[in-house]
Structures are given as C-alpha cells and as structure tokens.
Design a protein around this nucleic acid. Structure first.
Lengths: 113, 113
DNA sequence: CCGCATCCTAAAGGATACTG
DNA sequence: CAGTATCCTTTAGGATGCGG
C-alpha cells in the first residue's frame, strides 16, 4: 500500500538512483577536473598539459592521465617518432563533462572574488 | 595590432578569467559536494547528515560543516534546548550549486554502471 | 620529449572514547 | 544530540634522476 517508509537513506528523490556520489568517486580528485578542463576543445601534448596545469608533477600527471584513459574519458595517441610525441584528447564521454565544468565556472564567476 | 600572442597559459578563452581552478580549490574535496547535496531541498540535523553520508566520522563532518559555514554556503542554527538541536541549511549561495550537482548527476546516470 | 622509479611529505579522513 | 579530543592510517601529490 504505498507504505514504502520514506527510505531517507536515499538523498536524491527520483526514479533513478542518485549518481552524485558514484560520479565524484569516479573522477573526484583535485587534478582530474582540471585535466579534463585543459583538454576541452583541443588535443594537447604531455608537455603542454604540464605547462597549463602549472606545477603538476610528471608523476601525478601520468597517473591521472592513465586513470582517465582506463575510464574511457581520455584518448591517448602515440606518434612513433623521435623525439617521442604523444597527444591526449577527450573522448565524447569526456566532452560531455563540459556542462558540469561550465556550471562550476559560472558559480565561481558569480561568487568568488 | 591584435598580436596578443596566444597566451596559452590561460585555458579558458573568454573575457573573464576562468574560475574552475579557484572553485575547485574553494570547495574541492570528497565530502564537501556530498554534504551540499545532502542539504539540497531541506535543512537537516547533524545526526541526519551523519546518517545520510554513510560512514562519515563526526570529526570530518564537523570540520566540513564549519568550513562551509565560514564560506557562506551553509547556515547553522542552534536551538537552545535539551537535548541539543542544531540544524544546517544551505544559503542562497549554496543552493546555486544545484545546477552543477545536477550536471554531475546527469553525467553519472548516463555513463556509469 | 615522454614518463617511469624511488623516496618523501602533507593533509584528509577514520575509529573511538568522552563531554556539555 | 551535537559535538570535541586523540591517535592513527591512507593516499594524493611533490621532487628528482634515469631510461627509451
């Protein structure tokens, strides 16, 4: 009789389960969003990313990039030339995070400094 | 002569500086977004939050809430009764993060599991 | 140029017991 | 109930040097 007793364990009310926690867990650390952001629009080389993300260490950058690659958000293309050349770009799945980054940016523009 | 030489240090092209980095720094850790999310819609008591954010330790919860309060995102109201009662709610500034959380949720629903 | 290996630090967060 | 206090574990991330 519709007595589903307010399972307040669920934060999101709605038909589908809330994915916020899962999503944050999926890509939620300091650099991840920034890397995705840096790749919005055009592909970039390792060195460029290192430059754009001022101060990120190569170790961390590699780590994050590999992680994002595994998850199908970033595509890595290797050019077998000397000196080595590798380009990173977003997959469609990655591009779709733009909405969210825009929202974040909009909020920041309105409320920060 | 319009020779502003592609200051590719800036990731965001646009009139205003990009606020993504600043915003993430402002509220970027694991629990912050989840707490804000939990407060969307209605005010909640400490215990409720602890329950909704399964497994968060009281220390961490207090820490995060105080931090969000300082930043004007969360409002804390104390009822001088026994036993103690404290309610947390979002300020308008906090509510405006809904757009971003929705985008995050939408992405998750589409791409996760 | 790309990026791995190694070592190291800082900071977030967890567990638990206790107080007003 | 709403925290505070204490201690401890984990992990993100930095620095740097070497290798393909």
């Amino acid at each position: 009789m519709n007595d589903k007793p307010s399972k307040s364990k669920e934060i999101c009310s709605g038909d589908k389960p809330c994915k916020i926690e899962a999503t944050l867990k999926f890509l939620g650390n300091k650099w991840t969003f920034l890397i995705i952001h840096a790749l919005m629009g055009d592909r970039k080389r390792f060195k460029e990313l290192q430059y754009l993300l001022k101060g990120i260490s190569p170790k961390t950058l590699t780590e994050r990039l590999r992680n994002l690659e595994e998850k199908g958000i970033v595509h890595r293309e290797i050019f077998p030339v000397i000196p080595p050349k590798v380009e990173y770009s977003l997959t469609p799945k990655g591009e779709e995070l733009k909405t969210m980054l825009d929202a974040l940016n909009a909020w920041g523009k309105k409320h920060l400094d």
